[in-house]
Structure formats: structure tokens, C-alpha cells
Design a protein around this nucleic acid. Structure first.
Length: 768
RNA sequence: GAGCCCGUGGUCUAACGGCAUGACGUUCGCUUGACGUGCGAAAGGUUGAGGGUUCAAAUCCCUCCGGGCUCACCA
């Protein structure tokens, strides 16, 4: 039989063989394993970071299939949200305000369909063995977060939470991103170190320092520390440009050592402002609109915030009021998606209650595994820090609609029954207001925060609200990045606690990232590597997959990819090459019935021991450790010693040796299959004419740790190889028994297996 | 400001109180009937610095230096 050692050929062969053949869900097997995967946002290509995550997902799926579980491994694509809207505006030269909502959504869909198709092909190319409960026999089906079914679920959950009184409307000051043109939650706010100018200007007889001079138009007070001697007896300060006297507030939160110790209180520059406005009942004045332009100032209207800042500085300078500016480094709240500085605007939004569930969430988090502690601590810290409810409504188009109508007359919200997908912005549902009988009812035009959608994945895939839910929920595992602990993970946990009073996931595996040449992959740096390119650079999907788990433990640290010097990629590639060649060697000998001798039993028993250990490591998600253990046996023990010593025997058809090398190789292929599915699938078919994806693996009863004896055997081999090397003779040439002077501890082992050493190393002087 | 993590041969990495792993690179060597994209071997580290605990420290404690992360309202 011809076995190719060309990995490109092998992967191509398997891709063709498997095509759309999926990984069956067996309706009669009640041992379900449901894997919750991250629906990638498909407005753009999958990259190396995705490769890392889906590889881990797939490894788990394949292990669990080998262990006879009924694996449900759906992939989805996230199609809700902002980036595609911005992309559509650019791509088609349209704007959300000037285009009809229907048309705009259609344009978004065109872009999404295109990149979704690419994503699915990438998954297949990487060997991801996904399936879906309904579409089990068709590889390639991925659910969509904007499908009517998914949106119906999101809305049903919304309605359920609404009816429980967990959602309310309020007009607090919210985080607003002028670039994304929508409210964002605290989870999506990041503090970034930025350099800004601290501007010192004269206000009447006093000096004020501020980084936001443009907000002078919204200034309603100045604040000082009550113990600050400099400002003991003042009540008002004359503000320039607006020519108003504003009151002086004395509050402990003011740091007398910053700037001049006197702070402008404006609506709204930062959280201090919000706090003081509320505490002292100041009237807000809104001078920034939703496009991030200035309004109601009379002087800088229509300018952007940055332009207005420059203009104000110039005006102050012209009036001789600008004293000095100095550069300072400060932490500015920025938008997680756009990286733009956020503004604080008062806005009427829907909120989901969460503050009151903090302790419950922390309590329920104890019932599941969150791997590793470094990530778990991030989660706990985040939950502890929550001090506001979650604003869930957004003023965007491409998202799940808020399923509410409102009576224009009595202002009551009207809620439809759960179960269907509603589009209140264009559909009618209520004929009459049930409260006042009015027929003037309007649908809500807002959408929901995308995290309201994506936090439902475990419920969607485990068929919430159906009979199956009991069997499938809670979901077995989720693999996700650390960057979305406070969003995806937290919000999912919140949903689980609110809907089922438990963690929706049993095992949370939080991974680190792929760095490129020591740097974080990022769009702005343009150093990203697409998944397709990564497979090409690696020289095969199996190489990339193996690299993911063999370099470092991705649950503990970042994995670095160097485009110049891809060290671990080379190691992975060589390992796969070695496995193929091992198989080519073993395939020369026909598999035989069980047969053993004392020597081969030593290795077989030890292999069983290693196998059991590897299965345990897999089961505890220690993939890095599992591979190391397996590799060190396969290469260092099996290939280098057992195979080498076997050669003389297998060529003369010694069944014990032939049995041993087949046994070890065959099960090694099974154990490696989750990591390198293409290679093992191919070799298993060629050698044993069986479908490896249908095979099962269990721990072995007869397993013995023979490490000590095997180490001694390895030492003897090494000693003889060195001996020949020092004599400068080829390894196959004979050496006489008198030259071999083993140390005391090795002699008993040498004598015990003398015949094998004599034959294997061509030692002369012994009677045969 | 608070909290957390890391610092090991040229580079990356393991070790969680007991002779400091392994990978890549370097040097030397090898046609053993699979593998030269192979195999064997060698060189290379006073484990960031200093102090302490211990029979024993990369590992535990303290101080310092260097790097990173998370959270927080510094105008």
C-alpha cells in the first residue's frame, strides 16, 4: 500500500473524502456533550486568533466522540451589530440616516453573506468537525445570530425578563460613543492612557485647569475642596466666553493638589461631573449632539469636539485669559470597538437589572470550572466592580429589535407574547391599547445591544423552551478569549442566573492570544494573519493545529508567532512528518493477532499507562500537557528505541514485535486524532481501512508504569551508540562484547534482554 | 491610587521544596532495511539583584531593579 508523506496531498485527500459528510448526532445516545462556540463577527476574515480558539473547540469535540459521547458542536456566525453598518455605508456610499431602514439592512446582508461563506470554508479547511442538532448530517451549516429563529429567542428572553420586572427604562447619563453613534455599557468601556493638554485659563480672579476647555459652554459650577484655604470665602466665579457667574461647590471629591484645585463642573466631562450634577441638582446643558458635533453654544456650533477645543483655546488666548498649557498623561474612557473617546450624554434607555444579582452570580460561578485562575480572577473582579445596571437598548438598525410597542396616549409599553420574531418598527401587533383603548400605537425603533444576542448562545444551541433543553443544558464547555470575559462571559453568566438560576456552562476555558512577532494582533497595526494565510505558512492545517497546543499552554500565556522564524511551527511540522514515516515503516508489516514476549510486553504495558494518563489529561483540558506526554513517548521511547531494537525481529516476522508496534501506533493515532485529524484520518484509513472518526477509545486495565526499566534500556542503547561513535564506526557495524563495559545498575537489564541488545546492536562474541 | 502576574542557556519554554526540562539555533558525527523536512552526540544556564527560612530554594518569605496585565471619577 502506498502512503504519501506529502501533507498537502493528505489534507486535500481528506477534505475531498469528508466533503460535507458530517459528524453524526446519535438520537439513541443520551450522553450529550454540547459545545458552545463563539460566533465570530463575520464582517471580515477569520484570523489566526480564531484558528486557536476553534482548534481547541474541535479537539474537545473529537476527544468526546472518541470517548463515546453524543457530541453537539454547532458553529454560528454573529451578524448583528455596528461594524457591518459602517462597512455598508463605506462600501455602498450610503448613510444610515438617508437610506430607508429596509434597504440599509439588505445592503448589510449582502456583505455578511459573502464573508460568512468564507468563514465556513475556513472552518472546514481547518478541519473543524462542527454539526448542528437539526442539520446533523450536513457539514457546513452554521447558525446566524440574525436569523428569525435566533432573534425570536433573543426577543423571547427579553420578554421573559421584562415580564419578571427585570427590565426598566430610565434616563440616566450614559456612555455614548460618537463614532458608533450609540450608547454603550460599562463592559464596553476601556481606559486607555492618552496624552492630553491641561489648559490653565483665567476665570475672573481665579485660575482653572481643565483638559476639556470646550465644555466651558456647559459649565454650571466650579468645584473646590472644602478644606482648600485658597478658596475659603468665594461663592461665585465669573466664567469667560459664556459670561456667566457660576456657583462654587465645595466637595471632598476634589483633589486640591491637581491643577489649581478648582474644577469646572460641566455636563458632562467625566464621571465626577455626573456625580456632582446629581448631588447638587444642577441643570444640565447639552452641547454635544449624537454625531459628536457641538450645539447650543452660540460660538462653536457645528464643529467637532476636537475642532471646538482648538477654537476655545484660541478664543481664550485672544482675550489674554490663557495662562499656560501643559501636557499630561491621563486615563481616558474609550469605546471598546471604535477606540474613540466616549462622551457622557443623558439618554432614555432600557436597562436590565444586574447590580442586585452580583452575589448570586459569584455564588453560581463556584459550581463550574473557570480555567485558569488568572482568568477566573478577572471575572470575579469584574463582577465585584459592577455598580450600574446594564443599558441594553441601542439606536442602530442592524440588530435584534426591541420587542415593544408604546401607546401614544397613555405612554404605557405594550409587550407581545414570547415565541415569535417581532419587527415593531414596521409591523403592527396591537390593535388597541389594553390600558386606555387608544388605537394610536407605535412600535419601538430601537435595537438591542449585541451582547443581548450573543449572551444567548448556550440557550440557542441547547434548545431553550423545548423538551430537549432538559437533556442538553447546561452546556458542557465554552472556549473563549480573555478579552471578552467582562462582556460575553459575564453577560452569559448573568442570563444563566436570571433564567435558570445556574451557570449555563459547566466548563469555561479562557484562552490567551496569538501574538505576531511579539505584538498583539490588531487592525490598526495591520499585522494580522488570516486563517487561510496561517495554514499556508504553517504548511498544513494539522501543523497549525498542533502548533496551537504544543508551543505553550494557551490557557496560561500568549502564544507567539514569528513570521521570520516560526520555531514551533517547524517542530510541529517535523513531528507530523515523523508520525507519517513511522506509519510508513509499520505498514510494511501486516497486523497480527495478539502476541507478546517479555520485552514487548514491557513497552506495551507502559504505553497503556501513558495512554491512560493522556486520556486523563484530555479530560481535564490539559491539552498542552497531554501532547507533551504523548510526544515524549512516541518519539523518545517508541521510535528511537523500541522500533530500532525491533528491526531485526520484524523483518524476520516475529509476531510479538509486529503486534507491539502496530498496537502502539494504532492507539497513538487515535490519541493524536483530536489534534491532527487530517494526518491521522488518512493514515488510519490506509493502514487499517477504518474510519477513525467512528472509533472509540477507553482507558486500559492492564497498564504499568515501566519507566524505570525502559529508561535503563534507553541508557544501554545510548551507551553502545556512543561507543561506536567514539570508535568512529557506523552503527550497523559489529562491536565485540569485551568492549561493552556497562555500569552496575544497567547490567541486570542488559542480561535480561541480552538477545535483543545483541541482535539490535550487532554485538559479537555471544553464542547465538 | 488599588490589585494581580512575569523575569530560567543565543531565542522561546518546563519544573509548584530534592541532581535545572524540552524546542529552535550552533558545532561535530552517522547511508542501521520508515524518516537527510531524518538520526546520534556535544557545547551553552552561579534560574533579574540582594537578603532570609530550610539538611535542601528557580520554587517559600522580605527588599530592590526590569517588564506586563486588570480595575478605579483625577478635572
Amino acid at each position: 500500500m502506498e502512503i504519501s508523506n506529502d501533507l498537502n496531498y493528505i489534507e486535500d485527500y481528506i477534505l475531498k473524502k469528508r466533503k460535507n459528510q458530517a459528524y453524526d448526532i446519535d438520537p439513541n445516545n443520551p450522553n450529550f456533550i454540547v459545545i458552545d462556540t463563539a460566533p465570530p463577527y463575520v464582517d471580515g476574515e477569520l484570523h489566526m486568533g480564531h484558528a486557536l480558539e476553534y482548534t481547541i473547540d474541535d479537539i474537545i469535540a473529537r476527544i468526546k466522540r472518541l470517548e463515546s459521547y453524543n457530541v453537539i458542536f454547532p458553529l454560528g456566525v454573529d451578524r448583528n451589530g455596528l461594524p457591518v453598518e459602517i462597512h455598508a455605508e463605506k462600501e455602498f456610499g450610503i448613510s444610515m440616516e438617508k437610506t430607508s431602514r429596509e434597504e440599509f439592512i439588505e445592503k448589510c446582508k449582502i456583505l455578511l453573506d459573502k464573508s460568512q461563506e468564507k468563514a465556513i470554508n475556513d472552518w472546514k479547511r481547518l478541519g473543524i468537525s462542527f454539526n448542528h442538532y437539526e442539520f446533523g448530517n450536513e457539514l457546513g451549516y452554521a447558525y446566524q445570530t440574525d436569523s428569525p429563529e435566533y432573534r425570536a429567542l433573543t426577543q423571547s428572553i427579553f420578554i421573559y425578563l421584562w415580564n419578571k420586572g427585570l427590565i426598566y427604562e430610565s434616563d440616566k447619563v450614559i456612555n455614548y460613543c460618537p463614532v458608533c453613534r450609540t450608547a454603550i455599557s460599562n463592559s464596553e468601556v476601556e481606559y486607555k492612557t492618552k496624552e492630553t493638554e491641561l489648559v490653565y485659563f483665567k476665570a475672573g480672579d481665579y485660575l482653572i485647569a481643565t483638559t476639556r476647555p470646550e465644555l466651558i459652554f456647559a459649565c454650571r459650577a466650579v468645584a473646590v475642596n472644602p478644606h482648600d484655604e485658597r478658596y475659603k470665602n468665594i461663592e461665585y466665579v465669573e466664567m469667560p466666553l459664556i459670561n456667566e457667574k457660576v456657583r462654587v461647590i465645595k466637595d471632598e471629591i476634589i483633589d486640591p493638589n491637581f491643577g489649581t484645585g478648582m474644577m469646572m463642573v460641566c455636563s458632562y466631562g467625566d464621571r465626577n461631573d455626573i456625580f456632582l450634577f446629581k448631588k447638587y441638582g444642577l441643570d444640565q446643558k447639552i452641547i454635544i449632539n449624537k454625531e459628536g458635533k457641538m450645539i447650543n453654544t452660540g460660538i462653536v456650533d457645528g464643529l467637532t469636539i476636537a475642532q471646538a477645543r482648538d477654537k476655545v483655546i484660541q478664543l481664550l488666548k485672544d482675550k489674554g485669559l490663557l495662562i499656560k498649557t501643559e501636557k499630561i498623561i491621563t486615563e481616558k474612557p474609550t469605546c471598546w470597538r471604535s477606540k474613540n473617546e466616549i462622551e457622557f450624554l443623558p439618554e432614555k434607555e432600557l436597562y436590565l437589572r444586574q447590580v442586585e444579582f452580583k452575589n448570586l452570580i459569584l455564588e453560581k460561578a463556584k459550581d463550574c470550572l473557570i480555567k485558569e485562575d488568572v482568568s477566573k480572577n478577572l471575572f470575579i473582579n469584574w463582577v465585584n466592580n459592577i455598580d450600574e445596571d446594564w443599558p441594553i437598548s441601542r439606536t442602530r438598525y442592524y440588530g435584534t429589535e426591541v420587542p415593544l410597542w408604546k401607546c401614544k396616549k397613555c405612554n404605557n409599553y405594550l409587550v407581545p407574547p414570547p415565541g415569535k420574531y417581532y419587527k415593531p418598527w414596521k409591523e403592527k401587533f396591537f390593535e388597541k391599547c389594553p390600558f386606555c383603548g387608544s388605537e394610536e400605537i407605535e412600535g419601538d425603533t430601537r435595537t438591542l445591544d449585541t451582547w443581548m444576542d450573543s449572551s444567548n448562545t448556550p440557550f440557542f444551541i441547547s434548545k431553550y423552551n423545548t423538551e430537549m433543553f432538559k437533556k442538553l443544558y447546561p452546556v458542557f464547555v465554552r472556549v473563549q478569549g480573555r478579552d471578552i470575559i467582562r462582556t460575553w462571559m459575564y453577560f452569559t453568566m448573568l442570563k444563566g442566573v436570571l433564567l435558570t438560576n445556574s451557570s449555563p456552562i459547566k466548563n469555561w476555558l479562557i484562552h490567551f492570544y496569538v501574538n505576531i512577532n511579539g505584538e498583539k494582533m490588531s487592525k490598526s497595526k495591520g499585522n494580522g494573519i488570516t486563517l487561510e494565510k496561517a495554514i499556508e505558512m504553517a504548511g498544513g492545517a494539522d501543523v497549525l493545529r498542533l502548533w496551537v497546543v504544543s508551543g505553550v499552554d494557551v490557557f496560561k500565556s500568549d502564544v507567539d508567532f514569528s513570521t521570520r522564524d516560526p520555531k514551533n511551527m517547524i517542530a510541529a511540522k517535523r513531528f507530523i512528518n515523523k508520525i507519517i514515516n513511522l506509519a510508513r515503516f509499520v505498514s510494511q508489516f501486516k497486523e497480527v493477532e495478539k502476541s507478546e514476549n517479555e520485552f514487548t510486553k514491557l513497552f506495551v504495558d507502559h504505553f497503556n499507562f501513558v495512554k491512560n494518563k493522556v486520556i486523563d489529561l484530555y479530560d481535564s483540558f490539559e491539552f498542552f500537557e497531554a501532547f507533551r506526554t504523548l510526544k515524549s513517548f512516541i518519539i523518545d521511547v517508541f521510535a528511537d528505541h523500541l522500533i530500532e531494537l525491533s528491526k531485526k525481529y520484524v523483518y524476520s516476522n516475529n509476531n510479538a514485535f509486529i503486534y507491539a508496534i502496530h498496537y502502539i501506533l494504532k492507539d497513538s493515532l487515535l490519541l493524536l486524532h483530536p489534534i491532527i485529524p487530517f494526518t491521522t484520518d488518512y493514515l488510519y484509513e490506509k493502514m487499517y481501512n477504518k474510519d477513525i472518526t467512528k472509533e472509540k477509545i477507553t482507558k486500559h486495565d492492564i497498564a504499568k508504569n515501566n519507566e524505570e526499566t525502559i529508561t535503563k534500556i534507553m541508557k544501554i542503547d545510548s551507551y553502545i551508540w556512543n561507543l561506536k561513535k567514539n570508535k568512529k564506526i557506523a552503527l550497523n557495524l559489529p562491536i565485540s562484547k569485551e568492549e561493552i563495559k556497562l555500569s552496575e545498575d544497567l547490567i541486570p537489564i542488559f542480561n535480561k534482554y541480552k538477545e535483543i541488545f545483541v541482535k539490535g546492536h550487532n554485538i559479537e562474541g555471544y553464542e547465538s
